[in-house]
């Protein structure tokens, strides 16, 4: 996993909380910074793809690690 600037552990949270927490965290970050998100909600995979497409923040990486879902999002 590449370097990141902020981390958000959304493990155990269900829709739509991972997205809402991510949005909140991104709001405090500067453009170009990378947010690392950990989630356990399987729906978050498609949701973060859609979130990135609609908000313009780039989904740099999306992968499953040991039953958890990890994302890297670059703030636009």
């Amino acid at each position: 996993m590449a370097d990141f600037d902020e981390e958000l552990d959304a493990s155990g949270l269900n829709c739509p909380l991972p997205i809402l927490r991510a949005k909140k965290t991104l709001a405090k970050m500067d453009a170009g910074k990378i947010l690392h998100i950990i989630a356990t909600d399987p729906g978050s995979v498609k949701d973060f793809e859609a979130f990135a497409r609609q908000t313009g923040n780039e989904l740099v990486e999306s992968k499953e690690v040991g039953g958890k879902f990890e994302f890297l999002i670059k703030k636009a």
């Binding site: 829709c15 739509p16 997205i19 809402l20 991510a22 949005k23 979130f51 609609q54 908000t55």
Partner: peptide, 11 residues
């Protein structure tokens, strides 16, 4: 509330 909060997060 789910749809409204998510929509707001999407701008």
């Amino acid at each position: 509330f789910i749809l409204a909060s998510t929509a707001a997060a999407l701008g």
